[in-house]
Amino acid sequence: MSGAREAILGSVRRATERMPTGVVELPGYRRALGLDPAALLDRFAERLKDYDVTVLRVPEAQIATTASARIAERGIRTLLIPPEFPEAWRPSGPTLVPDSGQGARELNEIGGVMAGCCVGIAESGTIVLDAGPGQGRRALTLLPDYFLCVVLARQVVGLLPEAMPRLRPAIDAGRPLTFVSGPSATADIELNRVRGVHGPRTLDVILAG
């Protein structure tokens, strides 16, 4: 269909040839939130809670014990663990299932998943997964109905523009990004927000450090 390609590009060129050129100056929107570290984490936790996310704030050394207790409370018996998941985070209690390239049907039978992330964005309560170490392929954090996510304090930034430089390496490496802001939800029925449609219905966050 090279005919279509040339035709479209040709008419686009004709349509735009008289448009003014020159460098476009972007207005001075905020590039940083400018909160001190403690206030930044408070903001992040507060925004997550607005999405009905349970936030557990603990020192880094207590990630495994906190996860074990939480998973027991949630009644999760099988827990999916992505590749390169930190040894020190491994919870005790549930059967840990490593990613062995299972198909979607097998993943669908697993009760929960625990994973890390690439960056947390305080202002919007967003966690970005970049398919890096401790996160793995996208299906892992999608099919199990329960998602326990570990966010380290040093991964939290204020605004989206602060997160972009941290996301660029994954994009350049051809890895997908998934922005997660609370559990899946819909407001399609009379605008009532209902939590949990197709993605994990429950999202807990361990905010560590």
């Binding site: 925004r47 202002e123 051809g174 890895r175 990004l177 922005f179 802001s181 609370g182």
Partner: peptide, 13 residues
């Protein structure tokens, strides 16, 4: 403040 999920992908992985 943000929609629950935003997906970004590049070609085939």
């Amino acid at each position: 403040r943000m929609n629950p999920y935003t997906n970004l992908w590049t070609g085939v992985r």
